Amino acid sequence: MLEAVGVISRYLQSAMAQARYDLVGPGRFLAEIPELGLRVEASHLEAAREALQEALEAWLLEALRTGLTPPGLEGGEDPVRARFFALAGEMWRLLREPPRPVPEAPEPQKPEAPEPPKEKGEGGKPRKPASLEEWLKGLGIQVVKKPQAEEEEKEKVLTRLALFLGDRYPSLEKLYERLKQSLSTKRQFELSLSEASQEEIANSTQFCTMLKQYALLTSYHYKSEERRIRAKASTEGWVQNFLTGGWLERYVAERLRKFLRSKNLPHEVAVGYQVTLPGGDAMELDVLVRVGDRVYWFEAKTGDFQAHIAKYAGLKKVLGLSARESFLVLLGMDKARAKELTALHGLTVVNQANFVEVFQEVLEGNAP
């Protein structure tokens, strides 16, 4: 283990050796590592060096947490390096898992409250779908195509990218909007970070590094002197689909899975079912969730939603779901406007930051 720790110590020393220091004004020293997008200021040189060291350590911990291989540590030939990353990955996996509940002594039996009446199916029996497919078939909806599971490693990478973008979207919004605009033109884009915060710079450069590492960006360069990003996205179809909206569907599904696992609730989550409705219309259902006997539906949009919201309101009726069981996740939507849209269109409108919280309220019966 000491050898593995040495890998990190040597990496920190090597990265700090590439640091640059400048006097930018009276009592203002700048310290930066341009390759990593790290940049700090302090009142004197030693304070700037210490602040940069702390920023580098924080960046490295975050990189390991999200599964990013820091530049300079790529390659699996070194067995010490391989053992370290295997151990780091296992530690983060254990930290992410919810603690197992400790068995408690049984309490005295209390009279059970009567269960609320359940919806009836054919023959007057309660609706108890064994699976989401069975539930759809019971509504006369034909499943035309189910999403094909990707290779395990590809699934891990795409989920990691989706979680990184979704969890940090406020600081990545400008980058994502430029990236999405460039996807339609298939041309290189530029983004100035001259007015950006340190968090925006660090997250933007790290996300671009990840996209370039996995070839979702075919080119990427960060010019630290100008605080400017230049990059170009891959034109492959699956990359375009993922970056324009597929990532948000994946993010919603993964966050719901993590939440339901943390609550030890039996569940099923399905993403991207292509179906034919009873009237013959073809549709794609972004995310379906079954929790016990109840089914919930989530649609996710990263851009204009106005032309689709009436269609979603109609589809809710076909699915036989209430407004509280039908969610529309709109990227970057402010909460006040989301409440207004909810009241107008009979769907629960949320954003990428609060949809799990609202879903929990619905499950607990506390939604307004």
Rank of each mutant, 00 (worst) to 15 (best):
K120F: 00
K120H: 00
K120M: 10
G121E: 08
G121Y: 05
E122Y: 04
E122S: 04
E122K: 10
E122H: 05
E122L: 12
E122G: 00
G123Q: 10
G123T: 10
G123P: 09
G123F: 11
G123I: 12
G124Q: 08
G124C: 06
G124D: 06
K125W: 05
K125H: 05
P126W: 05
P126L: 04
R127Y: 00
R127S: 06
R127T: 10
K128H: 02
K128V: 07
K128L: 03
K128C: 01
K128W: 00
P129R: 10
P129V: 10
P129G: 10
A130D: 03
S131A: 14
S131Q: 09
S131K: 09
S131P: 10
S131T: 15
S131Y: 11
L132M: 11
L132V: 12
E133D: 11
E134W: 00
E134R: 13
E134N: 02
L136M: 06
L136S: 05
L136G: 07
K137D: 07
K137Q: 14
K137R: 15
K137G: 09
G138S: 09
G138C: 07
G138P: 11
G138M: 04
G138N: 14
G138Y: 07
L139I: 04
L139P: 05
L139V: 10
L139F: 06
G140P: 09
G140K: 04
G140H: 03
G140D: 06
G140T: 05
G140R: 03
G140C: 04
I141Q: 01
I141P: 01
I141F: 02
I141R: 01
Q142Y: 07
Q142K: 15
V144T: 03
V144G: 01
V144M: 07
V144E: 09
K145D: 05
K145W: 03
K145M: 08
K145P: 01
K145A: 14
K146C: 01
K146V: 02
P147G: 05
P147W: 00
Q148T: 14
Q148C: 00
Q148I: 11
Q148A: 13
A149G: 03
A149F: 01
A149P: 09
E150H: 15
E150L: 15
E150Y: 15
E150I: 06
E150P: 12
E151R: 13
E152P: 08
E152W: 09
E153C: 07
E153Y: 13
E153F: 13
E153A: 15
E153M: 11
K154V: 15
K154C: 00
K154M: 10
K154Q: 14
K154A: 14
E155D: 12
E155G: 13
E155K: 11
E155L: 12
E155H: 12
K156M: 13
K156W: 13
K156N: 12
K156H: 13
